[in-house]
Amino acid sequence: MKFNHISDRELLQHYVQGNEACLEMLIKRHKNKVFTSIYLIVQDRYIAEDIFQETFIKVVQVMRSGKYKEEDKFVPWVMRIARNMAIDYFRKSKRNVMITGEDGEDIFARMEIAEMNREETLISNQTNKTVRQLIEMLPEEQKMVLVLRQYAGLSFKEIAAMTDVSINTALGRMRYALTNLRKLIMEKELNLQ
């Protein structure tokens, strides 16, 4: 079976019918965008690995139970699970997290993650690491939209639905996120080449 031309929906159908290879193809197809998104949300590789595993194990469980109904929207569904897993993690952990969420605002409103020396990390020559650090400096609601749009590949409409805000709010947060990120880059005088 040639997998490259098969849609996510078809792969899911074949997987439910017992073709295990289809799950492997689905994971290979989406693992990097899902993992990068989780990593940027939790900012810890080991936690990200755990949440990544738990997310796809949940996917398997739901598929086996026949409860999956969003056949055309695999990645948004996976990211919704991953985001909930991340929220659960922060609730259970000793990290100080305030989750408001009543009005859909600031789900990860405040996370007091272990003190990190930002100055030290910013002088790193590793662009990947540096940009990750800058993303971490964004207000949580902006960071979430940025991660879901830029890395998970969700549309603004899908992000709005996932975070219980209007599309205009999601777009506004993205606009502020990119503008703030740009400012941070300029302030730190990073080499943009």
Partner: peptide, 12 residues
């Protein structure tokens, strides 16, 4: 800015 963001890439 988007080009900078594209440099961030992680895999499990």
């Amino acid at each position: 800015t988007q080009k900078e963001l594209e440099k961030v890439f992680e895999e499990p």
